[in-house]
C-alpha cells in the first residue's frame, strides 16, 4: 500500500452548508485623498520628491500612484503635479479573458501599466485599464496595442463618496 493511503479519510459522509458573509468598509485614502478627488474632477495627479541627492537614481522621484512620503528620503511630500496632459505611454499590457468576480461582466478587458517618459518613472508605472473602443467599452486585442503606445487618461463619472481607482482609464492618444 502506498504510504499516503493510510492517511486518506475513509469517512465519506459530508454536510456542506451555505454561509453568506457581507462587509461594508468605511475606508480613508488618507494623505493621498487628493488623487481620488482629482479623478472626480477629471485630473490625474502625482506627487513628486525633489530630494534627488538621496535617490538611488540621482533624479527627482515621481509617484503615480501618489505617495505622501518618499521611501528614499523619508520626507513628507506636499508637491502635487497634474499629469493629464503629459506624454503617457503603455509600459506593458495584458488582455484579460478571465478575472475576479467584480470584472467578469467587463471581459475581455485590457490591463496596462503606464509610464511617464518625461519623468524619472521609477515608482510610477500605475496599473490601469485601456479602453480601445469607447462606444461599447469592449476591449479587443488590436494590432496597434503595443509597448510604447501613446495614451491619454479619461475619467468615469463616479460619486465622490464611492470613488475608487477605476474612475481612471486610458484610451489610445489617437482616439477622441
Amino acid at each position: 500500500m502506498v504510504v499516503g493511503e493510510k492517511y486518506r479519510s475513509k469517512n465519506r459522509e459530508q454536510i456542506i452548508v451555505e454561509q453568506p458573509y457581507h462587509i461594508q468598509y468605511r475606508h480613508s485614502f488618507g494623505e493621498v485623498s487628493k488623487f481620488f478627488k482629482g479623478l472626480h474632477e477629471k485630473k490625474l495627479y502625482g506627487t513628486i520628491c525633489r530630494g534627488k541627492e538621496h535617490h538611488m537614481s540621482g533624479e527627482d522621484n515621481l509617484f503615480v500612484p501618489p505617495r505622501a512620503d518618499c521611501p528614499e528620503c523619508m520626507v513628507p511630500l506636499e508637491e502635487w503635479i497634474e499629469l493629464q496632459n503629459e506624454d503617457i505611454r503603455v509600459y506593458t499590457f495584458t488582455t484579460m479573458y478571465f478575472s475576479g468576480e467584480n470584472f467578469l461582466d467587463k471581459l475581455p478587458l485590457t490591463l496596462i501599466n503606464v509610464e511617464f517618459p518625461r519623468y524619472n518613472n521609477n515608482y510610477s508605472k500605475l496599473i490601469s485599464i485601456l479602453i480601445t473602443n469607447e462606444k461599447d467599452e469592449i476591449n479587443i486585442d488590436k494590432k496597434d496595442l503595443k509597448i510604447g503606445m501613446k495614451i491619454k487618461p479619461k475619467f468615469k463619472e463616479m460619486p465622490l463618496e464611492k470613488i475608487d481607482a477605476s474612475a481612471l482609464y486610458f484610451v489610445p492618444a489617437g482616439i477622441l
Partner: peptide
C-alpha cells in the same frame, strides 16, 4: 482595476 493576479503576472510576462 483588475482584481486578478494572473493579469498582473501576464503584464509582467508581456
Amino acid at each position: 482595476v483588475g482584481g486578478f493576479y494572473t493579469a498582473y503576472y501576464a503584464a509582467m510576462a508581456t
